[in-house]
Design a protein around this nucleic acid. Structure first.
Length: 588
RNA sequence: GUUCCCGUAGCUCAGCUGGAUAGAGCAACAGCCUUCUAAGCUGUGGGCCGCAGGUUCGAAUCCUGCCGGGAACGCCA
């Protein structure tokens, strides 16, 4: 397809004597119109001082002469619709899908999901992971080299809160003694801290203190602060506890990462890089990017960039979040030679990244002009935002379990249920459960917030991941049966006597759109474009499958052509699902 | 208050850098399993594209203003 588009553009530019780089309005023809490729003539005609009709007349004569794959052209209003030949379609079907490589392949660092180490992963992290993973695969398909990295926010008051509560309440309990997954185990103490703090504050308020003062004066808060100071001072006992609890969390994360098939090339730890902050501050001061105020604090004045006065170092000399991110950015450029660096982080941090990128630019950091914040909307519940303090957070692990169980139930309730070996069945339920969740989240534009409705998320019918998986599985079964029957699935030219029928032409037309979807998904960092493509492809094939006999077709040439088409549709579906991080089961 | 994002069918979402009668899914209703897996297919109803201007041969799409919803603006992360 792409070769044709290239030659078409070339032919049009030459015939109309247009400058080489003129962008031409060439697009896929809508399905309700006859034709495959459309040239929109309004703008061109205006430029050339002709009317669309006479322009069309010229092109209609000249294009079929230069491009033999054109079967027919038709002018509808200002649109020149080009219909391609069946022979070209059949030639196209000889080849498996080939993603078009970006003309300038890059090495791209992709950072996600960068969790805190004080509580388990939740639904918000899942959106982040699904996006990161999918964008990574989409960029790789376009020929880029993707380096996925994960930053652990493993220090600070948050983890100290869990540590405090564990010391106070656990009596030596561990994930091993309780059988609780490590990240959840630590998270439970984070919740316990919040509860203890709340109670302490309430008691102080009852004895006459203002709420603001009580927040600071309550024993849990005071002791957590003390613990943080001990940590920063390198107190061995505190460090040992910190290491132990973080380790529990990493083990828990690792289990979930494995379940989600996410892998990173490198992990960064805030606790390791934050020491480097100091020298970046010195460098910034020397360059005049930062200014030290009389109280000792260091600021970046970004007023003329519309970003205000940003504090980089506290008056007491300690680093802030932004300072650490500067250090991480520097560390990345020491570790890798990259052309682009992408951060997958929620849109609540839009301001933070504007500031971060602006400062890196001013510091002249390597690659500072190739930074991108892949900003995505929050995941909310019908009841509102998720609040860990209010216990309304949807944790990732139990959600994944629920999705798997929903898939199990659907499989058992299915009209034509399948019997699979137990292990295979378990893998299938997991794949379908995740397929449902991933698709449900990836089908919406990343920038938009998602109101997560549990009932809708477990839906397996209609515009869902499992519908696409199901379409794929059925089609694979058909191909297996064809093989058993000894029918040809070979990629040889089908000597079709009567040509293709309209539904087949439309099906191929759908396959031709793949690279447009992929290119746009990569350009816009938007997996939803691939999701829509996958759904439309499945939908169109399901309708075709319903109305046209494939395996049962008796004319061998027609049957073989249909089998070849079916095989290609399966490959495009499997590839699209892969780009979304969704498995394409052989049976379901 | 300043900045940013969002507003399309009852609900959830598409609609690409302006283009053909605004599309899917869910929900509702009516059909289709002795025929390749009914997690499927076919059909019906359902829309001042938030409002008002502007640019244009042409605007859901671009610009301005307004209305409504959300977020960010810490010596928190």
């Amino acid at each position: 397809m792409e070769d044709f588009l290239l030659r078409l553009r070339e032919a049009v530019s030459q015939e109309l004597h247009l400058p080489a780089e003129t962008p031409l309005p060439v697009s896929h023809t809508p399905f309700d119109q006859k034709g495959d490729i459309t040239i929109t003539l309004f703008g061109l005609a205006k430029r050339l001082g002709k009317n669309p009709a006479e322009l069309a007349q010229h092109l209609q004569v000249i294009l079929p002469r230069r491009l033999p794959e054109i079967a027919d052209t038709e002018l509808v209003k200002g649109f020149l619709n080009i219909r391609l030949s069946d022979a070209y379609r059949l030639a196209f079907l000889q080849r498996p899908p080939r993603p078009v490589i970006d003309p300038q392949p890059e090495t791209i660092i992709l950072e996600y999901p960068s969790p805190n180490t004080n509580k388990p992963l939740h639904l918000g992290h899942l959106r982040n992971i699904f996006l990161g993973q999918s964008i990574g695969r989409i960029l790789e398909a376009r020929g880029h080299t993707v380096i996925p990295v994960c930053l652990f926010n493993d220090r600070g008051t948050n983890i100290c809160k869990s540590m405090w509560a564990w010391k106070e309440l656990a009596h030596g309990a561990t994930p091993e003694t309780t059988g609780v997954k490590g990240d959840h185990f630590v998270g439970d103490y984070y919740v316990a801290y919040a509860k203890a703090q709340k109670e302490a504050v309430e008691a102080l308020v009852r004895s006459g203190m203002t709420p603001e003062q009580a927040e600071k004066e309550a024993r849990p808060a005071r002791e957590v602060l003390k613990m943080l100071e001990l940590w920063e001072a390198g107190d061995p006992e505190t460090l040992a506890l910190w290491k132990k609890m973080n380790q529990w969390v990493y083990e828990g994360f690792e289990t979930t990462f494995r379940r989600l098939d996410v892998h990173f090339k490198k992990y960064y730890y805030e606790s390791e890089v934050f020491h480097q902050a100091r020298h970046i501050v010195e460098q910034g001061l020397a360059m005049g990017v930062f200014v030290r105020h009389p109280d000792g604090s260091v600021h970046a004045h970004l007023e003329e960039a519309g970003l205000g006065d940003k504090v980089i170092l506290r008056a007491n000399g300690t680093a802030l979040y932004i300072t650490q991110d500067l250090a991480v950015a520097e560390q990345k450029s020491r570790d890798f030679q990259f052309d682009r660096s992408v951060y997958v982080v929620g849109n609540e941090q839009d301001y933070h990244f504007k500031v971060l990128f602006e400062i890196l630019r001013r510091l002249g950091a390597p690659g500072s002009d190739k930074l991108y914040h892949l900003s995505y909307g929050m995941v909310e519940l019908p009841s509102g935002r998720m609040k860990s303090r209010e216990g309304t957070v949807v944790d990732a692990d139990p959600l994944l379990d629920e999705m798997r169980e929903a898939a199990r139930k659907a499989a058992q309730d299915a009209v034509k249920s399948l019997t699979l070996p137990p292990e295979e069945a378990e893998n299938l339920y997991e794949a379908v459960g995740q397929g449902a969740l991933r698709y449900h989240i990836l089908r919406v534009d990343p920038r938009k917030k998602i109101v997560f409705n549990p009932e809708e998320s477990v839906a397996l019918q209609g515009d869902t991941g499992p519908f696409i998986q199901y379409t794929h599985a059925r089609l694979r079964k058909l191909l297996r049966d064809a093989e058993l029957a000894g029918f040809s699935l070979e990629e040889k030219t089908s000597d079709l006597k009567e040509g293709l029928i309209e539904p087949e032409r439309a099906m191929v037309k759908q396959l031709w759109r793949f690279n447009t979807a992929l290119e746009e998904a990569a350009r816009n960092y938007n997996p939803a474009e691939v999701a829509h493509y996958a759904f439309q492809t499945a939908q169109r094939f399901s309708a075709y499958y319903q109305q046209v006999p494939i395996l049962k077709e008796t004319r061998p040439d027609v049957r073989n052509a249909r089998l070849l088409l079916t095989r290609r549709v399966g490959e495009y579906l499997a590839l699209s699902l892969h780009l979304l991080g969704i498995q394409a089961p052989e049976k379901m």
